[in-house]
Amino acid sequence: MTRLPRDARMYWVVSGLVRMAVLGIGLAAAVWFLNWPRWLFVAPAIVVVLGLIDLAIVTLRYRNYGYRVDEREFFVARGRWVRRTVTIATPKILNVEVSQGPVQRLFNLAKVTVSQVVGTHDLGPVRPEEAERLRALLLDVAEREER
């Protein structure tokens, strides 16, 4: 199983903080300025608590995230307490998308999204060169399957 790059942890921390700040402040502002009932302040509080829990388990998430992509299978496993896996036959993948947001660009990371006939599945963040390698591999197998 291949592990994610070490910078993935920092990326998760920073993106988690950004998400928590935007959501928490947005909700609190809505409650304050729109004169919603004061007990609704519990909503931004829940966002902050969940965000902090998310930050606390970043290392654990990093340790338990692995993937295996070859000509036969696209396999992603994540989580320890709740272990989730996805297995797709590589030839059945229809297309691949590599994306890079501003925070990912900051840490030189990218996300790979594969589409099959029913839905999409994410992998990453990984290094851009690894994402490009995966994209080339998956599309090469898909093209061979077409032929």
Binding site: R84, T85, V86, I88, A89, K92, G119
Partner: peptide, 11 residues
Amino acid sequence: IRAVGTGIIGG
């Protein structure tokens, strides 16, 4: 069948 996914709680 195109894909399989599982979720295991607490091993």
